[in-house]
Design a protein around this nucleic acid. Structure first.
Lengths: 163, 163
DNA sequence: TATTGTTATACTCTATAACTATA
DNA sequence: TATAGTTATAGAGTATAACAATA
């Protein structure tokens, strides 16, 4: 029990006096992909909200706008499937986008709606996409182009049968 | 406008008659890391719920159990920080684990609690960890050991300053 | 005075079940 | 009869603000 251990204790105490604290033991967590994904997604979500979400557009709403633009006249049923949502869960989503004046429901036949962006929705989406591209650049700024492709490739191999 | 286009249309119709449908246009989404992360996390979450969640243990609750086991006597405040939760949000989490008989609050001083696993919590966690390791093997079954390490390395480089 | 845990409250996201209208 | 959208309702997860007790 010499100087070494004492120093360790001291530096621990000093660190805690500075408001830091000994790192928590994380157990098995760092071996789990899901744990890392959660941390990363938290950070991406926060950066998205800060840099893109000014108009109250979350990543999910942004995705819906993109899909409606890319598939004009899309039915709610089909969009719900694409977004892995129950069709009842999509209703308040479209309500919100319609209330913001970004999306329009147009009767396709008398029981189904085709979805379309309004002019305002198209304009806002253009701006959102610019901001999202900047956000994305920040997200991957520590990865080379090759690493970015590799990351997407590896993610695509995770539980591929389950999607 | 020859046989080619006609064939495409026909096969599209045939596919739709079989209950499939033309793939949706995804616009910019497949270029975004966040989009792929969402898909992957959905799939992992579903597999976890199916293969680990029998006792109503979500990935978040599992994480809390692991942290309490690895840091006996952990204070709620400290655990909330580690889990990126407000301390008020942690209260119902610990309530639930205590109601299940897995975790115990023991007064550390008269205003703070140290958290400990009960014997039952320790036993259940042992079983949960076995199931989580099997789940994790399924999650990465299409990745070599090298690819698994590479994936975790690349995830660690995403927005590292924001965590 | 600052910290710890708690409560009251509310908001987001999502699901299930039941209902209406219609294909 | 099956499908599209909606409504009512509920549950999980999380946050903010205010409060009591105590360091």
């Amino acid at each position: 029990m010499g100087a070494r251990l004492f120093d360790v204790k001291q530096s621990g105490r000093r660190a805690r006096r500075r408001g830091e604290s000994r790192a928590l033991a994380l157990g098995i967590l760092p071996e789990l992909i899901g744990y890392h994904l959660r941390l990363v997604q938290r950070a991406i979500f926060a950066d998205f909200a800060e840099s893109v979400g000014a108009e109250g557009i979350s990543p999910g709403l942004f995705g819906v706008l993109v899909l409606v633009e890319a598939n004009p006249g899309l039915k709610q049923q089909r969009l719900a499937e694409a977004a892995h949502l129950d069709r009842s869960s999509l209703v308040p989503v479209i309500d919100k986008l319609e209330a913001k004046g970004l999306v329009e429901r147009r009767a396709a036949d008398r029981r189904s709606n085709g979805l379309f962006l309004t002019a305002e929705g198209t304009a806002l989406l253009r701006s959102l996409k610019r901001r999202v591209r900047r956000h994305e650049r920040r997200v991957v700024e520590n990865l080379s182009a090759r690493e970015q492709r590799e990351l997407i490739r590896l993610l695509g191999r995770i539980l591929p049968g389950k999607r």
